[in-house]
Amino acid sequence: MIQVGNIDLDLFAKKIRYYTLKQFTLMGFGHYGGSLSIVETLAVLYGKHLNASPEIRDDLNRDYFVLSKGHAGPALYATLYLKGYFTEEWLGTLNKNGTKLPSHPDRNLIPGVDMTTGSLGQGISAATGIALGNKIAKRENYTFCIVGDGELNEGQAWEAIQMASHNKLDKLIIFVDDNKMQLDGPTLEINNPLDFVKKFQAFGYFSKRIDGSSVTEISEAVVWAKANHDKPTAIILDTIKGQGIPIIEEMGNNHHIRPDKATNNEIIKVMNILGKEIEVNG
């Protein structure tokens, strides 16, 4: 079992990316694109800023994390494995009969998952409720939530965003994975999201855009968010769907893919390179 703490975040991101790809290659298909685009953010949260671990999973004062874009579950599973919530054997059962790792996170099956998600738009509502409950209980813990850019087509999401602002949930930190693609195509063509930073600011948030592939910028943004008071914070992640794996980045539609043999072999080559880098660097 691999343990991590306050560690080399670039290396941790490589580990998450490697084990995310390993799950997909074993299964033969899946939501590659949106899982890979949040790897760096998961590395920063679970490697440095999120006060959560298997030892305190039942502590009400720990931090909470909600993956609203639940189809990116395999990236979260890789992260939870690396944090010691379960063994590597679980990763080989992704979405198979009898698995504890379904395609979307399930809090009743997976240790370390705070909220069942997958119905897009609902996770951000749950995260808002968790943050409100903690505020009412006068706890000082944080609630983090990753929401997809396409997911923000949902009206329910904006109801939750407004409600969080109204209640001054300054311990709620939302990340928008702006990878610019959704199930049916580019977000600009499906439903132009306009300027996410300005939209969140109009809803009463602290908000800014950062490079979602830079663990340094993400970590600095979390520090900035925690220094904010009396308002929730939205960090817009400028990402690429399939981030970190060029052959997937370059696909026209990589939301959910079933790679042919040649493509799968190329993905496995990249995965093996990552594996060797991890082995060399620990």
Rank of each mutant, 00 (worst) to 15 (best):
V222I: 12
I247M: 14
P246W: 06
G185S: 08
L188C: 04
G275C: 02
G133E: 06
G275N: 03
L188D: 08
I268W: 10
K226F: 00
E250M: 00
I218R: 08
H229G: 10
I257H: 04
M271W: 08
Y205N: 06
D170H: 13
A234E: 09
I174G: 00
E140V: 01
Q182K: 11
A164Y: 05
E279H: 01
D260V: 06
N254E: 06
A157S: 04
E217V: 05
D170Q: 14
A221S: 13
K199A: 14
K208M: 14
V176P: 11
D178P: 00
V223L: 05
N253M: 10
P232C: 08
P193K: 04
I240C: 05
L274T: 13
L194W: 15
I268C: 07
K208Q: 12
V147Q: 12
D230C: 03
E279C: 07
A221Y: 01
E279T: 08
Y205A: 12
L274W: 10
S219P: 02
R139A: 05
V197M: 04
P259C: 07
Q156L: 02
S207Q: 07
K226L: 00
E151T: 01
G244Q: 12
E277P: 14
Q201L: 10
K168A: 05
S165W: 08
W158D: 04
K135A: 09
N253A: 07
V197N: 04
N153S: 13
I146Y: 03
D211P: 07
I173G: 04
M271G: 07
N179D: 11
T216L: 11
D149S: 04
